[in-house]
Simulated assay, not measured.
Amino acid sequence: MAEPRKKPPAPRPQQPAGSSPRPAGATPGKAVAPRTSAGEVGAPAVPQYESLIPKSSGVRALLAPVGGFGVTLSNMFRKTVTEQYPRETVPTKPRYHGRHQLNRYADGLEKCIGCELCAWACPADAIYVEASDNTPDAQFSPGERFGSVYQINYLRCIFCGLCIEACPTRALTMTNEFELAGPSRAGMIYEKDDLLAPLREGMLAAPHPMVEGTTDTEYYRGEVTGPTEAQRAWVREHRPDDPTLPEGAGVTAAEQVGPTAAVMAQNVAAAHRQGGVR
């Protein structure tokens, strides 16, 4: 049996053109008053800016542009000071950022622990570090590791000092040495031997054991003030001809300048001699 057909819905009355849409819930066929527009929300009124600096007037306002060049004009009439370098070497300021230096503790052990934080902090990627483990027969620094390879490329270095700020043991500092001149590009790369600080009187050349009964904490706090007799005995046993021993030739004989630093020192000395000839 066929289902009865459903009646189609009655068509809605079309809205006259130009009339406003009927609000929801309004009765069909009933006139509705159009909604009035409230207008857009205006921006809050901002008070006009008034400067707290009193405005100049008269002659002062006329000379105000010239006052901005006061420092420049005052230096134009001063005597020019020219440093006669390299004939005359003027000392640098105490906090001048010059060549780097790897420092030592009071007993001669190296402060660098090979953490590579200086290499990570360098914005010019001028530092390269490789770390190795300390052993009982080769203790170069307090703790577990030391910097076995340390290089600084002075063709890249911008002497910003971020590397020394990142060093946790104050192993890396900057000296006042600014005369850097190499014969080649490879001659501008300083190795660890070129950067190590010179041994001071009383120090023992590394490697040698730490002060007995101490850890790296005592070293970092500065509680180690020099080598002990046990350390000297260890050096006598393993390196009887070490010049840093009390009976040795002294720290001056133990100093071995790195090859790059030695060549650079010769170039600087030659430049001074050439500059001294008029």
Rank of each mutant, 00 (worst) to 15 (best):
P9K: 15
G39V: 04
C157T: 06
T225R: 13
R185I: 06
G68H: 09
L155P: 00
A43P: 14
T175V: 09
T252M: 10
E3H: 09
G226R: 11
P209K: 01
G114V: 08
S148P: 03
Q266T: 00
A181H: 10
L73W: 15
A121G: 06
G275D: 12
E212L: 03
P86V: 09
L52H: 08
A2L: 11
A61C: 02
V257G: 09
E212M: 01
F140Q: 09
E83N: 07
E3W: 09
I113D: 13
Q14F: 08
L195I: 14
M188H: 02
G187I: 06
Q139M: 15
A249V: 06
D137Y: 14
E40W: 13
R239Y: 15
V41E: 11
E40K: 14
G276H: 05
A261C: 01
L52A: 15
K55C: 04
W120F: 15
C160V: 03
G42N: 05
L196V: 12
Q48V: 12
V257L: 13
E144H: 10
D125A: 12
R200V: 01
F140S: 01
P86S: 08
K30H: 13
I152Q: 08
P34N: 02
E88A: 14
A270G: 01
Y154F: 08
A38E: 14
F69Y: 13
R236E: 13
Q48F: 05
G147E: 04
V268T: 06
C160G: 01
R87L: 05
I113V: 15
N75Q: 14
T225P: 00
V59R: 11
M1I: 14
D107E: 02
L109I: 08
G39N: 09
S37W: 15
I152K: 02
C163K: 12
T72N: 11
L245C: 03
P47Q: 12
T217Y: 13
P4W: 06
Q139W: 14
R221L: 15
A31G: 07
R95M: 12
V41M: 11
A262F: 03
P9D: 08
P94L: 12
R156A: 12
Q266L: 03
T173G: 07
R12C: 08
A33W: 04
A121V: 01
G98Q: 07
A166E: 01
Q101N: 11
N134I: 03
L117G: 02
P142V: 00
G187Y: 14
A43R: 06
E110C: 06
M264S: 02
Q139P: 00
Y85M: 00
T72M: 13
R221A: 15
P44H: 11
N153H: 06
N267F: 00
A197Q: 15
T173H: 04
G18L: 00
N75C: 10
I164D: 10
E50I: 07
R95Y: 15
P4M: 10
A43Y: 12
N103D: 12
V263E: 05
Y154E: 01
G202T: 05
D107T: 10
Y219W: 11
C167R: 05
N267Y: 02
V235M: 10
D137T: 13
V257C: 03
G276K: 08
G250N: 07
Y105K: 03
A24D: 12
E50Y: 08
I158G: 04
G213C: 07
K7V: 07
